[in-house]
């Protein structure tokens, strides 16, 4: 299952954010999407998930045009976005959050899977999700990807505000998903972590794709100096 974006334009109201985006996530590949603040990374992920409607261009998932399909239909087709800033229902309990992910099917298995990866969640099933620590909340958010087994997983700034040890734990789970052959599209501020799991790298600058390549091409540092500022790599 391949994600393909061709000449895609999108934005909010009169404000155009994304210009002429061409991007491909081949089946089973991991793509890192990098760029400075305000480059349009989040908007791109939201457009793919269906929260932002493209103004023109093509957005194909598994060969089917998606531009005007609602987000929940794309979810049913295996597209999963874990949004920036703790993608959880703060007022529901941990168990209820997991039940939301599985949509009523196999709740017990979902709990089992989530707690196998993140044992701490198992001790907090009846706790209101919003009262957990930031790291635990992010684990719960990532648990969605684990229990719903999506074909394409998009993750937006997973590590913001988390302790390194927690980030390690969460990235270990993502590595596993990668090993299972799921497609990944990752936006991440820790460039090295993103490069470590990526097959391809796209750099977004002011709403346009300015670089497409492989992680090895980025090691030199010149690319980052040009688009992300010195010292990033």
């Amino acid at each position: 299952m391949t994600l393909e974006l061709r000449n895609l334009h999108a934005g909010y109201g009169r404000t155009q954010v994304l210009h002429d985006i061409n991007l491909t996530v081949p089946a089973g590949a991991a793509v890192a999407l990098l760029g400075s603040n305000g480059a349009g990374k989040t908007t791109l992920l939201k457009t793919i998930a269906g929260l932002v409607t493209p103004t023109s261009g093509e957005l194909r998932w598994n060969g089917r045009e998606q531009s005007h399909r609602s987000p929940h239909r794309r979810v049913a087709d295996g597209v999963c976005l874990i949004p920036e800033g703790r993608g959880i229902f703060r007022n529901l309990t941990v168990a209820e959050n997991l039940a939301m992910h599985t949509r009523g099917r196999g709740k017990a298995k979902a709990v089992e899977t989530a707690t196998r990866y993140f044992p701490v969640l198992g001790q907090r099933l009846s706790q209101t999700a919003g009262t957990m620590s930031g790291g635990q909340q992010q684990m719960l958010a990532v648990a969605r990807a684990l229990v719903t087994e999506p074909a394409l997983l998009m993750i937006d700034e997973l590590s913001v505000g988390l302790a390194p040890v927690v980030i390690d734990e969460i990235f270990a789970a993502i590595e596993l998903l990668r090993a299972e052959g799921r497609s990944l599209l990752v936006v991440e501020q820790y460039v090295q972590r993103a490069l470590a799991i990526a097959d391809y790298v796209y750099i977004l600058n002011k709403g346009r794709i300015v670089f497409i390549g492989e992680p090895a091409q980025c090691r030199s540092g010149t690319i980052f100096e040009r688009y992300l500022g010195e010292g990033v790599a």
């Binding site: 998930a49 987000p71 929940h72 976005l81 949004p83 993608g87 229902f89 529901l92 209820e96 939301m100």
Partner: peptide
């Protein structure tokens, strides 16, 4: 019920509810 849970989830975060597959 799932619909009941959806209703509570939608008021919590309508966008996220859509992202988990609920029709908000």
């Amino acid at each position: 019920t799932q619909t009941g849970l959806d209703m509570r989830a939608v008021v919590d975060d309508p966008q996220l509810a859509e992202l988990t597959g609920a029709n908000a």
